[in-house]
């Protein structure tokens, strides 16, 4: 039986909490024993509502020990790993601290606030010989896994075009409004658009160059709107994000279009459709479970099996995603195409 401590009960922490509840209800041998958050009000389960309703009101918070300090939690509980759902700038210092204290770490995306901080996490992982994996959750989403398989199996031949979009309401729910603070979150570009950067990196590798337009909409925020062209040989690749679509009817939306020689696959309005050229389109049969569920279960199963969880989501790769995003910020700042070293 694995014992887990959840660090940070904001929007993502709440969604991870629901996943642990589901796993425990299913009898899966993982037990969330403790929760840590600086906000005392979270003790009774006051959850953060984001732009996706991921919280579960049926959770009995008396089942968990509550702490406002992670080190105290680690000292008092016999934990196997911590699940870190803190603001981005705290990922590296908290992950390193937990590994130093002997625990494995599952850490929310983005990996860290900078490539330098990412490297410190990797160094700590090697120094303390603990398991560390970043929750770049789209790599576990069945709809994105479907694309990965089409690419790997060369089902539709060469990939010609990729168009990605994410967007929705402004995240005004975060603790101390950290998400709208460039220094602590990196803005929409590093927090939300990073999913698409990671998708491109995961599926296509590092682009030769990036050219990004960005707009800062809120004072002190990072880029709140972003559009990036990724330069690859013989491929048209673009990703856009905008977290200022402030209408609850919209909420949040993620879309993709992958166009191959022999067919195109589109995700929009939550619906995945496969359009083979000149044949009847169809909705592929995919796993109905969420990527959050699948990534956490993957991590826990890896710990139980004593195999490295990052095999499914390598740290070097999630760090490379941050390097590409940093190149995008430079491109947007200078309004110039930015070439990436190989």
């Amino acid at each position: 039986m694995l014992k887990v401590g959840l660090v940070g009960l904001g929007f993502m922490g709440s969604s991870h909490l629901s996943v642990y509840k589901q796993l425990m209800d299913e009898g899966y041998p993982v037990k969330l024993v403790a929760i840590c958050d600086v906000n005392e009000e979270k003790r009774t389960g006051k959850l953060t509502q984001g732009n996706i309703d991921v919280s579960d009101k049926s959770i009995d918070f008396t089942e968990f020990s509550f702490y406002t300090n992670m080190e105290e939690m680690i000292e008092n509980e016999e934990l196997d790993y911590v699940d870190i759902c803190l603001p981005t700038y705290l990922h590296a210092p908290y992950a390193i601290k937990a590994m130093e204290k002997g625990l494995h770490v599952f850490c929310e995306k983005p990996m860290a606030i900078s490539t330098k901080a990412c490297q410190e996490m990797i160094d700590a992982r090697n120094k303390y010989n603990r398991y560390l994996m970043i929750g770049q959750t789209l790599r576990f989403f069945p709809s994105y896994q479907y694309i990965k398989k089409i690419i790997d199996d060369k089902t539709y031949g060469e990939l010609n075009e990729v168009a990605l979009f994410r967007g929705g309401t402004t995240p005004l729910w975060s603790w101390d409004n950290w998400l709208l603070d460039k220094e602590r979150s990196g803005g929409c570009l590093l927090d939300q658009h990073i999913h698409d950067v990671d998708t491109i990196n995961w599926l296509l590798g590092t682009p030769k160059a990036v050219y990004t337009n960005g707009k800062v909409y809120f004072d002190g925020s990072g880029y709140d709107m972003v559009s990036t062209n990724y330069i690859f040989d013989n491929k048209v690749v673009n990703a856009q994000d905008n977290w200022t679509i402030n209408n609850d009817d919209f909420g949040f939306e993620m879309r993709f279009r992958f166009s191959f020689k022999k067919g195109t696959i589109i995700l929009e309005n939550g619906k995945l459709t496969d359009y083979p050229n000149n044949k009847k389109s169809f909705a592929p049969q995919i796993d109905e479970r969420s990527g959050y569920y699948l990534e956490i279960k993957h991590f826990a199963q890896s710990i139980l099996d004593d195999v490295d969880p990052q095999l499914a989501c390598p740290l070097e790769s999630t760090m490379e995603t941050i390097r590409i995003a940093e190149a995008e910020i430079v491109s947007a700042d200078t309004n110039k195409i930015n070439f990436l070293d190989k």
Binding site: Y28, P29, L304
Partner: peptide, 8 residues
């Protein structure tokens, strides 16, 4: 450790 989950 998996007896419970598999049984459920």
């Amino acid at each position: 450790v998996y007896h419970k989950e598999l049984s459920l």
